[in-house]
């Protein structure tokens, strides 16, 4: 939540500034600009670059502290599996909506993620919101815990099984990012 504090030489304590200009973010924002204008001229490119730099300076974000080595095959499998799950969960919700006089039996479960990375927490939270029938009602960064509201789960046992689904999802994301086994995730130790 709060940025880390840093003591300056004069002895005042103030929040440490993030490194504002992260190259990947600048490239991405420029790309979005060019695509939105549908104009790949030099002038537009430069203008997009300026806007991207201004945005990065005005709204600095914490850096992603994570050693990543993206594995294309695992990433492709994650995406394919994700799209398939989006279809499945949409059909499931649609079916529950259309069933007459059906009262869905929901559950709120707690899932402790194995990885201690903020990035993985974010990605898994995003993905589990679209699939497989859950939304995140509370996320705790300190313990890397997600609280999920699971739609139309039936009984307590299936709610318990659902935890495994989310952890499997996390494992797929970790494999795709090449983060390896959760134990050697480098960051987050300072917590």
């Amino acid at each position: 939540m709060s940025p880390q504090l840093r003591t300056t030489r004069r002895g005042d304590v103030r929040p440490a500034r993030y490194q504002a200009l992260q190259p990947a973010a600048v490239v991405w924002l420029t790309l979005v600009w060019v695509v939105l204008w549908r104009d790949l001229s030099l002038g537009n490119l430069v203008l997009g670059l300026v806007v991207a730099v201004v945005v990065c300076v005005v709204f600095p974000l914490p850096p992603v502290r994570m050693r990543m080595r993206i594995r294309p095959a695992a990433l492709a499998w994650t995406v394919v599996r994700f799209l398939a799950d989006v279809v499945v969960s949409s059909v499931h919700v649609a079916y529950a909506v259309l069933r007459p006089r059906h009262r869905p039996r929901n559950a709120v479960i707690e899932v402790d993620l194995t990885s201690s990375s903020d990035l993985v927490l974010t990605i898994v939270a995003q993905m589990t919101s679209l699939i497989p029938g859950s939304i995140v009602v509370e996320a705790r960064r300190s313990t890397h815990t997600l609280f999920l509201h699971v739609f139309d789960v039936g009984d307590a046992e299936s709610a318990d099984r659902f935890r495994g689904t989310v952890l499997a999802q996390e494992a797929r994301v970790l494999r795709a990012l090449g983060a390896g086994s959760p134990a050697d995730a480098p960051e987050g130790a300072t917590g």
């Binding site: 679209l130 009602v137 509201h149």
Partner: peptide, 12 residues
């Protein structure tokens, strides 16, 4: 919360 499910998944 159930309505939120309907608002996310089939809509997306």
């Amino acid at each position: 919360l159930s309505r939120m499910h309907a608002a996310t998944k089939p809509q997306v």
